[in-house]
Amino acid sequence: MDDFLLQTNEITKDFKNIRAVDHIDLKLKKGEIYGLIGRNGAGKTTLLRMLAGLAQPTEGSYSLLGLSGKKIARLRDRVGVLIEAPGLFCSMTAMQNMKVKAMALGLKEDDYLKQLLDSVGLSSTDKRPVGDYSLGMKQRLGIAMALVGHPDLLLLDEPINGLDPEGIIEIRKLLDKLSEEQNITILISSHILEELSKTATRFGIINRGRLISEFTREELFSECRQFMEVRTEDMGSASTLIEGMGIRDYKIVDKTTIKIYERLDETGSVISELEKNGVKVISVDMGRRSLEEYYISLVDQDDRVTAGR
């Protein structure tokens, strides 16, 4: 248990008759950026709210930095949170907003607050009220406020929502910097896999409150790289022959389809080798699955399984 900074154990949340989060087991190591992907209403925010101590689990538990139960509340300044909106006081300056957060946590470190504002590209001497800030600046200020108290864990709920491309890039660079320079563990949620794939090192797909799949960035790009899709009625012989050709990187999708990720520039010779050995090839296609297609396929598969129950 101590190997993980955060570990949930069958954590569940019910709202009357609706199960928002359904027995989720999640483990986060120190310094990793974990991307939680799911469509709207999938349970991302509820899960993050529970982990931030802003909602009580109906069932299950979680431990953070080795503490669990009511003891976790001691870690108030070790966890940074940005749930949906930054919660800014719009008539106040950025520095005043930072001071509010520091005071709420019982901290008095003006110089540190200035450094934090600098680190997110905002000025501590800016006299403008934050109500005049752009959405991207507000989000960056929200992240700076979440960083008050030297947190080990940063929980960010859809921080790129509503941002323009420049704003998204700003946030991405900021998160990369935080992870590299301060080794902060970041749990970030979004419904855009494409965007998270550029930042997160590990991913979890949440659907209908359940964590249906987890994979690393390498696994994600492996799933989404270019492939040769061969359809045949004789899968047994085909797979044996492919192995015989020295191809190790392939995947049997179903009874008639096999995906090959190697020797893509030698399509002709692979197919002729199969046919020469009596395997009838129905079709051959080259393709590349997008990240979003991969995400949708996982969710659709889960929806079908759920509907079939």
Binding site: R49, A52, G53, L54, A55, I72, A73, L75, R76, V79, G80, V81, L82, I83, E84, A85, P86, G87, L88, F89, C90, V100, K101, A104, L105, G142, M145, A146, L155
Partner: peptide
């Protein structure tokens, strides 16, 4: 003041 603008939503373990 601390609740209306959702500031309290961003204080961990702050719903106590």
């Amino acid at each position: 003041d601390l609740i209306s603008n959702r500031f309290a939503d961003n204080i961990p373990f702050g719903s106590d």
